[in-house]
Design a protein around this nucleic acid. Structure first.
Lengths: 129, 129
DNA sequence: CGGTATCCATTGCGATACTG
DNA sequence: CAGTATCGCAATGGATACCG
């Protein structure tokens, strides 16, 4: 009976609290931001340059959310004009290991996913009589 | 120099292809569906009952996407009225291990996140002079 | 039963303009 | 520089109705 690949599957359910946290922390931009930030701290506009597709508003929102959840820290350097530095908090670092695991998974399985997509799309085309 | 907790951080970048795949596979409902399906196969309306908050339209979309990416398989049983069974594909099973890792992470760090939020929200209130 | 099609409210999100 | 505020559009996603 090896329907599930690991024994404690029943204990791990995706309930509301888990979902809410994962949503806050694995959302559209958080992965990128956290991953980029993990190398070394960045300033706000440095992040914008490194992730050009994200709008300023979304970036701000993402940073605030990550900060609120303890994933990153925001340091204001009161120079003129002022500077703000973002860096990963210890908690965010533990999460980043999981993100890297996800990245390794995508890298490893990208070809197989591509095959699955090709198969699916082909079957779809041929099924109109 | 231990800025990053693991050596290969530079090799793992969240680029467009990775993001696209993760978006398809870790989106709002996929986690739930995949996790539920991992126990044993389900019929369409069984899934609806087990995840009552998801709309029928979104569930269909999620199932199609997961199927297209090779995460699950769809089996039509041509009885009257017809039945459709969804089950995890091998590829989906490997992904599910990562999902469980994420769930373990949330479970383990939920308290610390809660503290971080309380701190953040408190600071926020007190900062209006 | 297992969907698809349509309608509609809500939200997400980028672009722009403005502030300390 | 590092945001906030406002606008407007496009995409989500639920509710409903209908089909094989």
């Amino acid at each position: 009976m090896k329907e599930t690949s690991h024994p404690d599957a029943a204990l791990l359910q995706v309930d509301a609290p888990h979902r809410e946290l994962l949503d806050q922390v694995l959302d559209k931009w958080s992965l990128q931001v956290l991953d980029v930030l993990c190398g070394h701290p960045r300033r706000f506009n440095e992040l914008r340059r490194e992730i050009p597709v994200v709008g300023q508003k979304s970036l701000t929102a993402t940073l605030r959310r990550l900060e609120r959840n303890g994933m990153i820290e925001r340091h204001v350097i009161s120079t003129r004009p002022l500077a703000v530095e973002y860096r990963v908090a210890p908690l965010g670092d533990t999460l980043n290991e999981l993100i890297d695991a996800l990245l390794r998974w995508t890298t490893a399985n990208m070809p197989e996913v591509a095959r699955a997509r090709a198969r699916f799309d082909d079957d779809d085309e041929n099924e109109d009589e």
